[in-house]
Amino acid sequence: MFRTEFDDPEGVRHGGLLTFNYRFAPDGLCTRRQLAAEGLTPGRQPIAAQIKWRRGKRFAYLYRRDLAVPKRPATDAQLRALTKAWVALSTCPSCKTEYGYYIPKRYGECLDCFEQAGA
């Protein structure tokens, strides 16, 4: 069943911002994630519209695809910094073992070291 609760393609009811129901946005308008999946970013363009769902508690801004610009690739320095951060956050400070996941901040060390300290 089609609900027209948030359908406002002229932007009269929602402060001048074109508003559509979930899955009913016109072609050419995309969310940030949809643009990112295509290797694009909104750039500095303004928000073109929004979609609303779940009784208006959920919403997503839409941007024009034709004004989107290609994403800039990360520099070598940025990639090195991300790698360094990953190593720091996935290495246990107690046993110095690097894991394939972040060490839980709740415990401050890997689960093995946490359990040994508690025993």
Rank of each mutant, 00 (worst) to 15 (best):
M1K: 13
M1V: 11
M1P: 10
R3F: 13
R3C: 12
T4M: 08
T4G: 15
E5M: 07
F6R: 03
P9K: 03
E10V: 00
E10C: 01
G11H: 05
V12C: 01
R13G: 00
R13E: 02
H14R: 08
H14F: 15
G16E: 07
G16L: 08
G16H: 05
L18A: 08
L18N: 06
T19I: 08
F20V: 10
R23E: 10
F24Q: 12
A25Y: 00
A25L: 01
A25Q: 10
A25T: 02
P26Y: 03
P26Q: 03
P26W: 05
D27H: 11
L29K: 07
L29I: 05
C30K: 15
C30Y: 15
R32Q: 15
R33T: 11
A37S: 12
A37E: 15
E38N: 10
E38L: 15
G39C: 04
G39D: 05
L40D: 05
T41E: 14
P42V: 10
P42F: 14
G43A: 10
R44L: 14
R44Y: 10
R44G: 13
Q45S: 04
P46V: 01
P46R: 03
P46D: 03
A48W: 01
A49Q: 02
Q50W: 06
Q50F: 06
I51H: 04
W53S: 00
W53V: 00
W53I: 00
R55W: 11
R58I: 02
F59I: 02
F59D: 02
F59L: 12
F59S: 09
Y61S: 08
Y61A: 08
R64G: 00
V69M: 07
V69L: 09
V69S: 06
P70R: 14
P70M: 11
R72A: 09
P73G: 09
A74W: 03
T75I: 05
T75M: 04
D76A: 15
A77S: 10
L79T: 06
L79K: 13
L82D: 07
L82Q: 09
T83D: 04
K84F: 09
A85H: 09
V87W: 01
V87G: 00
A88H: 08
A88D: 12
A88Y: 04
L89N: 10
L89K: 09
S90A: 06
T91H: 01
P93S: 07
S94Q: 09
C95M: 01
C95W: 01
K96F: 08
K96W: 06
E98H: 11
Y99F: 15
Y99A: 10
Y101H: 12
Y102D: 11
I103E: 09
I103T: 06
P104L: 05
P104W: 03
P104H: 03
P104D: 08
R106V: 06
R106P: 00
G108F: 03
G108A: 07
G108Q: 05
C110V: 07
L111I: 13
C113G: 00
F114W: 12
F114G: 12
E115A: 14
A117W: 07
G118R: 15
G118I: 10
